[in-house]
Design a protein around this nucleic acid. Sequence first.
DNA 1: CGGGATCGATACCCGTGCGGTATCGCTGCC
DNA 2: GGCAGCGATACCGCACGGGTATCGATCCCG
Lengths: 277, 277
Amino acid sequence: MRYFVAVAEELHFGRAAQRLGIAQPPLSRAIRQLERRLGAGLLERTSRAVTLTEAGAVLLREARAALDAVEAAERRTRRAALVATGRAGVVLATKAGASSELLAKLLDAYAAEPDAVTVDLLLCGIGEQERMLRDGRADVALLHLPFDTTAGFDIEELCTERQVVVLPAGHPLTGRTHVQMADVTELPGLPMPRWPGRDGTYPDGPGPQARDHVQLFQLIALGRACWIAPESCRAQLRDDLATVPVLDAPTVTTVIAWPPHSRSRAVAGLVRTAARL
Amino acid sequence: MRYFVAVAEELHFGRAAQRLGIAQPPLSRAIRQLERRLGAGLLERTSRAVTLTEAGAVLLREARAALDAVEAAERRTRRAALVATGRAGVVLATKAGASSELLAKLLDAYAAEPDAVTVDLLLCGIGEQERMLRDGRADVALLHLPFDTTAGFDIEELCTERQVVVLPAGHPLTGRTHVQMADVTELPGLPMPRWPGRDGTYPDGPGPQARDHVQLFQLIALGRACWIAPESCRAQLRDDLATVPVLDAPTVTTVIAWPPHSRSRAVAGLVRTAARL
DNA sequence: CGGGATCGATACCCGTGCGGTATCGCTGCC
DNA sequence: GGCAGCGATACCGCACGGGTATCGATCCCG
């Protein structure tokens, strides 16, 4: 399955083999074998191009989930062995720079619990928390709807907040008490920056590139961009930036999420604490 | 992992090896190897008994999930290949004898949809639907809260109903317009029957044994048992049985559930149809 | 239209590792 | 104390995964 995922992602046997650290012929054979075992054509190959069949697309999705589950099993077992010897706590995945106030309150409140264990923070990029939770690198995560998806996790809603537009201080709009989405999309000279995707490349389109929040805020302060963010971000803004509520932007809900079969007392305690905030 | 799950379930290397169709020594080695690879003790063995360690218990849970995911990947890929050639439809898992009216309406309504495919029914015993959904034998299922758990699935609530007690016709209580739980638990001579668990054995305790609904209703008609069930069961009762609403019994919610990553158009159509009922 | 480049498939060889049998060592019990 | 039950160890053989060399098809370019 690892082999198949590599080929399905590269759509190229040679590169996939290289990525897997094996030669190309055994890879070809392995895939053929898999196809025979499943009784289904997975890849359409010509000598020029490789494409996924319907069944191949299904297997790609399912195989990723299965591989994640296997990895999670390994990692969680290793961690359980460490926890048993008292050498590790619980890993909380959270988006870098988001919900910092909520996070601080949660950590404080949890630390005050009688049976609290160490909470290790795992700061993630956009959308990374889901994978961390799925493959066992994290035990529990803070997600933000509607940006993250919670499919397959148990969740508890923590808070819902409106969004604001972040502008350079002194921008004409900062005088307003509120704005609409239409006021800020396509602002002349203040486009939304582009973020790199999971593969590290930037999407096409206008707007400057930003890799993290420091760069983002720098861009805004320089009058080269604007940004829409949950209002809780105001607590950590530099004072050369200003915010204005955007009335019709979708609200952001922060949820705490954990894998559905989690039996960890630490996770349960963290969730209980969070729900009481 | 398959090996480990077998040993963890049997707590006996010999029996586990037999179940796996291999000899005992390679099994011992495989488990030792797994322990070394994970760097964690999984089993506590003396020459008389085998017990799970903390880490072993975690791995048992995680490994089952991972194995289910792998099986699901295989099955769903096979099915996708069949569907592509138009030889199969979608598999709906449902509790035998439950929600029959709702099910009939759903199947009728879905069949009338323009892009409907064949719906194969998979009638399950108590609690079996979850596993069917998890390991890919079913694409979508009807579950009944609070009896089934929906952890890890996407769901849509379909209907909520009260429960009734099923009694032999002519029983004194049948004259009442409603009863309380206290009226029907420990009814003299009318205990709740015992159902076999997943392993086919009956729990200890009083009450007759019933293997299916035919036996159950027979027992009730004979005046040897009573039963609490969702009120929709009335449609399929024999006329020598009577029902009385139980005011303080938990309500039963029928939900339609599907694996969170499902991209099947057929499943989506079925869910959409169900939600409109 | 032919030659080269690209890429997956095939042929064949080799070594590792998994599974098998035989046996040991420990432990509890009659 | 002897025996039975059970997991661990020792050792062997073969099947399978991975390697190299090469083929065959397809596209591109002059």
